[in-house]
């Protein structure tokens, strides 16, 4: 699959088959296309070519089995809802059109908050939570989706130690209950401790597979050894050509 963003290819020829029941990290330098990869999997950005299949079915059919934790910065945290309201959003799919959120769904949402250690903060307005707590609320919302495959975009970015422990705990719980989690991750040190599989990404897949096979000094060097300047220039040129704009003056 090749992913283009604003007609500009940012990921070339990604080819990966995720094993079930594993914790998978996507690792790579800034601008490597980590977030774009999971957004492309979830149909949030258009793919230039290629396809994504979940359990052998296209995205549309598998959607109800997917969970998503977006980047924390992607929403306005001044929004007038409480932590519990946000987690309830994960239940909306089950509730369906028009029906209000019933008590049983609230209980389920509270249980999810409990799993991330945030039950005491259920009625707090979300802007009054710390960054790590906000991240845990997002995680709880994904849990409320009761999915089989989770995509998490930088859940560990800028969080405190307590949150990091809570998230890791939840990830392990998910694995032991047979789920698969794909996490965009930026902290190389913790990869071997937290994850089973790793995808090393820098505009293309440098290497992928079990952590102990793939997470080598040599592969990391290849991943972080600078941008492929020629490939990025080619991206720009393809973007310009596709949008029909002439060469920039």
């Amino acid at each position: 699959m090749t992913v283009a963003y604003h007609r500009k290819p940012v990921l070339w020829d990604v080819d990966y088959d995720a094993p079930p029941n594993k914790l998978i990290a996507i690792v790579g330098p800034n601008g490597a296309g980590k977030s774009t990869l999971i957004k492309a999997c979830l149909g949030l950005v258009p793919r230039a070519s290629g396809q994504v299949e979940f359990w052998g079915a296209p995205y549309r059919k598998a959607r109800s089995r997917l969970g998503y934790v977006p980047q924390r910065e992607s929403v306005d945290w001044d929004f007038p809802v409480s932590a519990l309201d946000v987690v309830c959003m994960g239940r909306y799919r089950r509730i369906g059109w028009f029906w209000p959120v019933t008590r049983s769904h609230k209980q389920a949402a509270l249980a999810c908050l409990d799993r991330v250690g945030m039950r005491d903060y259920a009625s707090r307005q979300i802007s009054q939570l710390s960054g790590g707590q906000q991240q845990r609320v997002f995680l709880a919302r994904a849990l409320a989706q009761e999915a089989d495959l989770y995509f998490m975009d930088e859940p560990f970015a800028g969080v405190d130690a307590a949150t990091e422990r809570a998230i890791v705990g939840v990830l392990r719980q998910l694995r032991s209950s047979g789920k698969t989690v794909v996490v965009v991750h930026h902290d190389l040190q913790t990869v071997p401790e937290y994850f089973d599989e790793v995808i090393l990404l820098n505009m293309r897949v440098v290497a992928s597979g079990p952590v102990r096979d793939v997470f080598t000094r040599e592969n990391l060097h290849k991943t972080y050894g600078g941008r492929l300047t020629l490939l990025s220039e080619a991206s720009e040129a393809v973007a310009r050509a596709a949008s029909g704009e002439g060469p920039s003056r």
Partner: peptide, 14 residues
């Protein structure tokens, strides 16, 4: 409220 708060999540949620 779901769409206003987080449209990307809403889309993934179907």
């Amino acid at each position: 409220s779901l769409v206003c708060f987080n449209d990307a999540f809403a889309r993934v949620d179907g």
